[in-house]
Amino acid sequence: MSGSRMRPLVGALIVACMVLVGPSAPVGVPFSGSLPVEATPDVVANRVMTWNICNPCEESNGDRAAEIATYAPQVIGLQEACVRDVERIVDHLESRYGLVYQVTYGTVLRNWGRCGGLPWRPGAYGQAVLSMAPMTDLVSAEYSDGGSEDRGYMAVTTTVDGRPVRIFNTHLAERRQEAVRADQIGALAAEVAQHDRAIVIGDFNAVPNAPELAGMWTLAADVDPRCRPSPSGDCRPTTDWQSKFDYIFLRGIAPRGHRVRPTPYSDHHLLYADLDTRTGERSQSPVA
């Protein structure tokens, strides 16, 4: 039989074998991604995380998802987040690790250079909150003055440690824009003050003793009991340039412990904390 006649027959045999044997992996079964040995096996119901994922940084959303899955927080706030990137991160978390997060956005900017898309239809950029529990009462606000780039905050109500909590996620104006950040803190603090139990996370672009952060320190405490708004405060850096810019502020909630984890996928470290929403008293038991 000639080669031209054999090819259709071989193709038909291959198709028949595939029908009989089936695919090499079951359809619809999620791929289980590999995580470090120290990874958390299940979602930690009282864990909250903040992470500026760096943009534009050309990082893999699969790698970003793996970092989140390693610590498996109940809630994570992302800054410098493009909607398309977050969608892919959420998809990876579900398909590779079985972590099904809900997501809400606090985008304040449409930027083709940062988020891709078409010049006349650029991607949305800002903050996002991922939560294992449903989120309600979304507020997304842009600061009246963002400084050199539009900035804002978002707020949702969701469940942490079995209780409803108001979560705020923000990204303040860039460095060397102290007066702008002071105004932004004023707007944010006015909203936080309306809640007896709140968690405020984000990239504040300011060290703890920066004067513009005073309005937040009067309302809430840092998740690290040793971190104070003074030069003598023992505050662990959260950036590659050895400054603490990232915060988890607590109001009416006690920290059980926290960790700062450097990552190769951003110039900001991962910061997460395990919390006790049932009391305002501090506890210093370590995070696993």
Rank of each mutant, 00 (worst) to 15 (best):
residue 2 S to L: 10
residue 5 R to N: 09
residue 6 M to V: 11
residue 10 V to P: 01
residue 12 A to L: 15
residue 14 I to L: 15
residue 14 I to V: 15
residue 19 V to F: 14
residue 19 V to K: 02
residue 21 V to T: 12
residue 21 V to Y: 07
residue 27 V to Y: 13
residue 27 V to G: 05
residue 33 G to C: 07
residue 34 S to I: 11
residue 35 L to D: 07
residue 38 E to D: 13
residue 40 T to M: 14
residue 41 P to G: 03
residue 44 V to G: 01
residue 45 A to E: 13
residue 47 R to S: 04
residue 51 W to L: 11
residue 51 W to N: 02
residue 54 C to W: 15
residue 57 C to I: 09
residue 58 E to F: 12
residue 61 N to I: 00
residue 63 D to N: 11
residue 68 I to Q: 07
residue 68 I to R: 02
residue 69 A to E: 10
residue 70 T to H: 10
residue 73 P to W: 13
residue 75 V to R: 03
residue 75 V to D: 08
residue 75 V to H: 06
residue 77 G to N: 12
residue 78 L to P: 01
residue 80 E to M: 03
residue 83 V to D: 09
residue 86 V to N: 05
residue 87 E to R: 14
residue 92 H to L: 04
residue 95 S to F: 05
residue 95 S to G: 01
residue 96 R to Y: 07
residue 98 G to V: 00
residue 98 G to P: 05
residue 99 L to N: 03
residue 102 Q to S: 09
residue 105 Y to F: 15
residue 105 Y to H: 13
residue 107 T to S: 14
residue 107 T to W: 01
residue 108 V to M: 09
residue 110 R to D: 13
residue 110 R to N: 14
residue 114 R to C: 11
residue 115 C to E: 13
residue 115 C to K: 06
residue 119 P to Y: 11
residue 128 A to E: 05
residue 132 M to V: 11
residue 134 P to F: 09
residue 134 P to C: 05
residue 134 P to T: 07
residue 135 M to Y: 10
residue 141 A to V: 14
residue 143 Y to W: 15
residue 146 G to N: 10
residue 148 S to T: 15
residue 149 E to S: 13
residue 149 E to P: 01
residue 152 G to T: 06
residue 152 G to W: 06
residue 155 A to K: 05
residue 156 V to T: 06
residue 161 D to T: 05
residue 161 D to M: 04
residue 170 T to R: 03
residue 170 T to K: 02
residue 173 A to R: 01
residue 174 E to I: 01
residue 175 R to H: 09
residue 177 Q to Y: 10
residue 180 V to N: 02
residue 183 D to E: 14
residue 183 D to S: 13
residue 183 D to Y: 04
residue 184 Q to L: 12
residue 184 Q to S: 05
residue 189 A to H: 05
residue 194 Q to D: 10
residue 194 Q to C: 03
residue 195 H to R: 08
residue 196 D to T: 12
residue 198 A to L: 10
residue 199 I to Y: 07
residue 202 G to T: 06
residue 202 G to C: 08
residue 203 D to I: 10
residue 211 P to S: 10
residue 212 E to G: 01
residue 213 L to S: 02
residue 215 G to D: 11
residue 217 W to E: 10
residue 218 T to P: 03
residue 218 T to H: 09
residue 219 L to Y: 08
residue 222 D to M: 04
residue 223 V to H: 02
residue 225 P to R: 04
residue 226 R to W: 00
residue 230 S to M: 06
residue 234 D to A: 14
residue 235 C to D: 13
residue 237 P to C: 08
residue 237 P to W: 12
residue 237 P to H: 11
residue 238 T to E: 06
residue 242 Q to K: 10
residue 245 F to D: 01
residue 247 Y to M: 06
residue 247 Y to A: 07
residue 249 F to Y: 14
residue 253 I to D: 03
residue 253 I to M: 05
residue 259 R to P: 00
residue 261 R to C: 00
residue 262 P to Q: 00
residue 265 Y to K: 01
residue 266 S to V: 03
residue 267 D to Y: 09
residue 272 Y to W: 15
residue 275 L to A: 04
residue 277 T to Y: 03
residue 280 G to D: 15
residue 280 G to T: 08
residue 281 E to C: 00
residue 281 E to I: 02
residue 284 Q to P: 01
residue 285 S to F: 00
residue 286 P to F: 05
residue 288 A to W: 04
residue 288 A to C: 02
